[in-house]
Design a protein around this nucleic acid. Structure first.
Length: 711
DNA sequence: CGGGAAAAGCTTTTT
DNA sequence: GCTTTTCCCG
């Protein structure tokens, strides 16, 4: 096998004899290459069957990437090779062992929105005050407990509130069980529990997976660690790859200590450090190293490169957030002139709210951009409605799906009716559907409500009957037309309704594509499609080939790289964020986040801040981020030149003449993309004039006059 | 039931 | 401040 393309440390990792291995892989040190080469090595040189290998990642994207690279390296179909996310693998496991896990065969996956609604229902059913026990907090509590592997009985209540939270957890868990649904955490937890309690299954899997590989190990939480130990058993080889300096998910339960624990729990583990970086210039690496060196309790690593110094880091001090945005946009235009593609530039920020000002600036100059991490296709309201119909077809017990569509589109089933159904379901301990049927039999409802309910039952029954003989996409088509969802959303005025109808129609295509591509061996197509929607919907929107500037949070930038990176909002209170500044542990996590951001840049890094920024509606003044001070001065080129000094923010009561050049306040205008709107403010004159317009469909935007037409 | 007004968030996010 | 959700009334 040819390993010439790997450096000595990488080769050491790939060629290591069977046994445990800890790979400390710095940013840009080629960890994915090491992982994929290792898998290939195991198969080719150690003669391990792909059937005996399990590779685990956190995201579907990483899993797909790994699979396709292994496939192209080995030139074998990798179907027998298990590569997937913790959740995806657990799901597959539970689909096989549903009986042993005490689940119905058709169990469905609850996503976080469903989970939230269900928890709220439980809180109400327990007659608790939503203000005293916010569903969000209860959801947080429940997920945190599950991530620690604790069932309701195992939680030690701290106080009275804790006791109530446990009751909510208990009620929630019972409802899930009754409805035959599992949440994301359950996938891991139930898998782990089954491995613990069922000796036969444990023996089977421990015998099967002789080699386990885990990517991004610094992001594992308690249950994932326990899960891994359960699968590894006493005799199998485990290779973990991670970077303690890139652990940025402590707030959602990731345990950085898991890396340190690994050497204790997996005896004889060899350690390999990958420190040669192939991504960034020497200056960028020096800055990154200097920042992360401020953190204590690191495993220790120093990135180096044999590449050039490169350009200094430009630090720009903006006058305000708008000025900062204009500076960034102007530099992007420079890059364009220097023949960089727009997709080579990324603007990274700490919090999503920062994107708005930057987007407005980009829009004014007509620069195409893409914001990552928006609402995903399968998370859209209309899509979830349609999926809820499908879920209820597959499983009448699915209470969350029932709640969602019982009156969507509106069919005259009001709150009153629903309350009595919920009441019976609660007291009798049955599902909503069963309660509904029982109440109908008892002639419990008024004539009007009864009619509406009967037609709903008839609709669902006829859908079930008809769809039994249909292909998946025909089923979707049938649901869309029979449920009237499309008509319902068509009535929604403006562009919103139109997009929703388009999205719904797209669902038919998605279903069609799904049946053609992903023939999931052992599952009925509908169940497989629903699981796909819940578990793997994320990279659906991922690859758009249009050349545009990439906007995203620092968190979602992890794992990516860009020739040119702007790190915006480098101010105290924003980055580090004010909620993380007082606790040393979370401050260190902020610093790691900064390290992640800096190491995304390949050739040029800009770090910008604003002296004055609007936050939560108030103008606030902040000092530059401490992280800027942690970078040695000789690596930095400071810019204080203000691109837009003559652009003070207009005061609310300042008198402005009615007419200024081409547009005046109150005028109706037309925009090529945004449609019709009314001018609410303007500034400057000629084509350079900035016009604030309230559009009918897309809200208020500030635009250059050159892009507008009067009516 | 639908639309408008009032009120409540408001760090990061994958599965 | 802005946006999303909830609430209340016709």
């Amino acid at each position: 096998m040819i390993l010439n393309s790997l450096n000595p440390a990488q080769q050491e990792a790939v060629r290591a004899p069977l046994g445990h291995q800890l790979i400390l892989a710095g940013a840009g040190s080629g960890k994915t290459r090491v992982l994929t080469h290792r898998i290939a090595w195991l198969i080719e040189m150690e003669k391990i069957s792909p059937f005996n290998i399990l590779a685990v990642t956190f995201t579907n994207k990483a899993a797909h990437q790994m699979r396709s690279r292994v496939e192209s390296m080995l030139d074998i179909p990798s179907k027998s090779l298990w590569i997937g996310t913790f959740h995806g693998i657990s799901h597959r496991f539970l689909r096989t062992h549903w009986q042993e896990a005490g689940l119905p065969q058709s169990f469905q996956i609850l996503d976080s929105d469903d989970q939230f609604r269900l928890i709220r229902r439980v809180i109400n059913a327990l007659n608790l005050d939503e203000d005293r026990f916010p569903p969000k907090e209860a959801q947080w509590f429940i997920n945190a407990q599950k991530e620690e592997g604790r069932m309701p009985e195992q939680v030690e209540p701290r106080d009275i509130t804790g006791q109530t939270l446990i009751r909510i957890y208990q009620g929630y868990q019972e409802t899930c069980q009754r409805a035959g649904v599992v949440d994301f955490a359950d996938l891991l937890l139930k898998t782990y529990q089954l491995m613990q309690t069922n000796a036969t299954i444990r023996a089977e899997y421990q015998k099967r997976f002789r080699c386990l590989l885990v990517d991004e190990f610094q992001d594992t939480n308690t249950i994932q660690y326990a899960w891994l130990k359960a699968f590894a058993g006493e005799h199998n080889s485990v290779m973990i790859v991670g970077d303690d300096d890139q652990s940025i998910y402590g707030w959602r339960g990731a345990r950085i200590e898991n890396i340190q624990r690994f050497s204790k729990d997996f005896p004889g583990a060899s350690v390999v450090r990958l420190e040669q970086n192939y991504r960034s210039s020497a200056i960028i690496l020096k800055a990154a190293n200097a920042i992360i060196a401020q953190n204590s309790s690191r495993l220790g690593k120093n990135l180096w490169t044999d590449g050039k110094d490169g350009e200094p880091i430009t630090v720009y001090a903006g006058f305000n957030d708008i000025d900062e945005a204009f500076y960034i946009v102007n530099r992007i235009r420079d890059c364009q002139k220097n023949h960089f593609a727009l997709r080579d530039t990324a603007i990274l920020y700490r919090s999503n709210a920062q994107s708005r000002v930057i987007e407005e600036a980009l829009m004014q100059f007509g620069i195409p951009y893409r914001v990552y991490g928006g609402l995903r296709y399968f998370d859209r309201q209309e899509i979830r409605d349609a999926l809820a119909y499908l879920r209820l077809i597959a499983n009448r017990s699915d209470d969350p799906a029932f709640e969602r569509i019982i009156n969507t589109p509106p069919r005259g089933i009001g709150d009153r009716t629903l309350v009595s159904i919920r009441e019976l379901a609660k007291t009798a301990g049955i599902t909503l559907w069963a309660a509904l049927e029982q109440l109908l039999q008892q002639k419990h409802f008024s004539a009007r409500a009864e009619g509406a309910l009967l037609s709903f039952v008839a609709l669902m029954n006829s859908l079930s009957e008809q769809s039994a003989s249909l292909t998946l996409h025909k089923q979707v088509e049938l649901v869309l037309s029979a449920s009237n969802l499309i008509d319902h959303y068509r009535k929604e005025k403006g562009e919103k309704g139109l997009t929703r109808v388009e999205n719904l129609e797209e669902l038919i295509n998605a279903a069609h594509q799904f049946t053609q591509e992903g023939v999931q061996d052992d599952m009925p197509p509908l169940a497989a499609f629903l699981a796909y929607a819940a578990l793997e919907s994320s990279d659906e929107q991922a690859e758009t080939y249009e050349d545009c500037v990439q906007l995203m949070t620092l968190h979602s930038a992890k794992g990516l790289e860009f020739p040119i990176v702007f790190l915006a909002g480098c101010e105290e209170e924003l980055f580090p964020h004010y909620m993380c500044m007082n606790d040393p542990k979370s401050l260190e996590e902020e610093r790691r986040l900064c390290y992640v951001g800096v190491t995304r840049a390949m050739r040029k890094l800009y770090m910008t801040y604003a002296e004055c920024r609007r936050m939560h509606g108030k103008e606030s003044y902040h000092r530059p981020s401490r992280f800027l001070n942690e970078i040695p001065a000789e690596l930095i080129e400071e810019v204080r030149f203000r691109t837009n000094v003559s652009r003070p923010r207009p005061l609310a009561n300042t008198y402005r003449p009615e007419s200024q050049g081409k547009f005046r306040i109150g005028q109706e205008i037309q925009h090529r993309i945004f449609g019709e709107g009314t001018v609410v403010d303007c500034e400057g004159d000629g084509d350079e004039m900035k016009v604030k317009v309230r559009f009918a469909n897309v809200g208020t935007k500030v635009l250059l006059a050159g892009y507008l037409e009067g009516k």
